[in-house]
Each structure stands twice: as structure tokens, then as C-alpha cells.
């Protein structure tokens, strides 16, 4: 059983994640945007963060990821990033050129498949601190 924070601007994604994760006894908190998510994380001290790319507000999801990594208390929490097919490539985020790589530990495409989500969550919860992708690693995606 773990504490998991879900951040997405879409109600249905939050509800689906909650339902799936609660069925395994996890404790879930939700936030509707990056700013609220960051605040919630400081209070809730989650063991894992599930973060949406959040296309609607452009780079909100990316921004949140960097914010977590820059906070001493939060930087070692594994992050699972939710995306929709073809989404990353469309954003004006040039991974190659800027040498910036997303500091997240795994990507997962929607729709959410319970078994996959649960397996990924288990794997990420077991991740050792030294294996957390704090800097952003080249071939993560």
C-alpha cells in the first residue's frame, strides 16, 4: 500500500486512476493542475506521482516535473507520465536540441489499462533512489 498523487486536468483520468489504484488498497490524492499538484505533494508526501502531459495548458506537466525534481523533499519521488499517442512530438519541446530531457521515470499511453498501470506502479514503487531519473536521461523515450 502506497500514497499516490495523480495530477491531470481531466476529471475522468483522475477518477479512473483512483478507482484502479484504490482497488489495490493504495491511498490516492488528486490535483487538477501542476500548481495544485505541487502544493499537494508537499503536504501529502506521496510515494509516487502520476502526472499528465496536460496538452491543454501546454507544458504544465513538463513544468511540474522539473518543479518536483528541484525540490529537495520531492526530488526522489518516482514520476509516471501519462501521454496520449503522438502527443509528445507535437509539443514545442525539442528534446534533442535543448539537451533537456524529461526527468520522469516512465511514460504510459492512454487509455488506461488497469493491469498495465498496476504493474508499472509496483515497479516504480520498488525503484531505488539512485535509479530515479532526476536529470532526464536521453533514451528514456
Amino acid at each position: 500500500m502506497a500514497k499516490i498523487l495523480c495530477i491531470d486536468d481531466e476529471l475522468d483520468v483522475l477518477e479512473s486512476c483512483s478507482t484502479i489504484l484504490k482497488s489495490k488498497g493504495h491511498i490516492i490524492k488528486c490535483a487538477g493542475n501542476g500548481t495544485d499538484g505541487y502544493k499537494e505533494a508537499l503536504n501529502f508526501k506521496p510515494d509516487l506521482i502520476i502526472l499528465d502531459v496536460m496538452m491543454d495548458s501546454h507544458t504544465d506537466g513538463f513544468h511540474a516535473a522539473y518543479q518536483f525534481r528541484n525540490n529537495e523533499k520531492l526530488k526522489n519521488i518516482p514520476i509516471l507520465m501519462l501521454t496520449s499517442i503522438n502527443q509528445i512530438s507535437k509539443l514545442k519541446f525539442n528534446k534533442e536540441k535543448d539537451g533537456q530531457f524529461l526527468p520522469v521515470d516512465e511514460f504510459m499511453e492512454k487509455p488506461i489499462v488497469p493491469q498495465k498501470l498496476l504493474a508499472e506502479v509496483d515497479r516504480l514503487l520498488g525503484l531505488k533512489e539512485e535509479n530515479i531519473n532526476r536529470e532526464g536521461v536521453k533514451n528514456v523515450y
Partner: peptide
């Protein structure tokens, strides 16, 4: 919406 509905159906 398709993703949302499919996620619910998966559940």
C-alpha cells in the same frame, strides 16, 4: 473522450 470511455470500460 475515447480514451476516457475506454479507461472506464477497462475498469
Amino acid at each position: 473522450p475515447i480514451n476516457a470511455i475506454e479507461s472506464y470500460l477497462n475498469i
